[in-house]
């Protein structure tokens, strides 16, 4: 187990050791979340590395990563705990067959730890090897308002109550990271409990750093061309702007195709790695790709 970083720079270095390149703003927020023990709320477009930071933190600190993927209709049984009903039923039948009908003993046995199925939130409250875990509550915008209200309660006290067992409280509160793609506005009350950060698309220099850290096998000139092209693409009026994840995917595609340098044909063939809507692909493929590539090359030439 690694100790928590003591400063913003240490936090950035720590994330860097996991090949997660982050800017000063995100580094500051991450450090504060660790130091103040407040949940970190990351909002931004898909594919900007919101989920990755939780993985990087967990790996760097040697903590266990517990992930709660949100979806519509997520309820307590799937998020906190559930009783193993099938096993309980069998236990009842067995007790009956054995003529063992002492109700109190039966009840105590049925609702013991043995029959409890732990779900992510409960697990996160329990002591883990390596210290309090990193709890990633992913895509919180996909759940509905009732679950949000529940989260509000859980995140302020770090305890849950199981009627049959009593209240379970975390000895050391977990490091909580919430992410949202903003398909819905998450309620202000929940955001207020957290440190908020809007994860934006990185600029040219940082995206180059990210690409180098994540896809080190890409040659330098190719990396620069890739990033310049993606940055130009983000300026276009697209239905879905490609994120950093798409840049990395595309770079891997190009390497798999043994590309040394970008050309309009290669771009048109591999656009599917970056653009996921037919309208966007139809718009960019062909002449538009050539124009963007020329613009990107001109930018690069000016910069160097």
């Amino acid at each position: 187990m690694t100790a928590l970083p003591r400063s913003i720079d240490a936090t950035i270095d720590l994330l860097g050791s996991q090949r997660y390149v982050c800017g000063r703003a995100l580094g500051t927020v991450a450090f504060l979340a660790l130091d103040l023990g407040k949940p970190l709320f990351l909002e931004g477009e898909a594919g900007t590395g919101k989920t990755e930071i939780a993985k990087a933190l967990a790996a760097a600190l040697g903590r266990r990563l517990i992930r709660l993927q949100c979806y519509e209709g997520l309820d307590a049984a799937a998020a906190i705990y559930e009783w193993n009903f099938a096993a309980q039923m069998i236990a009842i039948r067995t007790a009956e067959a054995a003529g063992d009908t002492d109700r109190d003993t039966l009840q105590k046995e049925l609702f013991s730890d043995h029959y409890l199925i732990r779900r992510p939130l409960l697990e996160a409250l329990e002591p883990q090897p390596g210290g309090a875990p990193v709890l990633l509550i992913d895509e919180v915008d996909r759940t509905d308002a009732p679950f949000e209200a529940f989260l509000l309660e859980a995140l302020s006290d770090f305890q849950v109550t199981i009627p049959e067992l009593g209240t379970i409280r975390a000895e050391a509160p977990p490091i909580v990271i919430l992410t949202s793609n903003r398909t819905r506005e998450v309620h202000d009350a929940l955001k207020r409990r957290c440190l908020y950060h809007w994860v934006d698309f990185p600029g040219f220099a940082r995206e180059i750093d990210i690409l180098r850290a994540r896809v080190p096998e890409a040659a330098d000139t190719l990396s620069r061309e890739i990033v310049a092209f993606v940055q130009a693409l983000r300026g276009e009026d697209l239905f879905k702007t490609p994120g950093v994840a798409e840049t990395l995917d595309w770079a891997r595609c190009l390497i798999a195709l043994d590309t040394v340098s970008l050309s309009p044909e290669v771009i048109s063939d591999t656009l599917g790695a970056m653009l996921k809507y037919q309208d966007d692909i139809a718009r960019i493929a062909g002449a538009e790709a050539t124009r963007l590539l020329d613009a990107a090359r001109a930018d690069l030439a000016r910069a160097s």
Partner: peptide
């Protein structure tokens, strides 16, 4: 840092 610190706490809408 001061800028980002206060922003993280005080702003919660892009």
């Amino acid at each position: 840092d001061f800028y980002h610190t206060l922003r993280a706490v005080l702003v919660n809408r892009p």
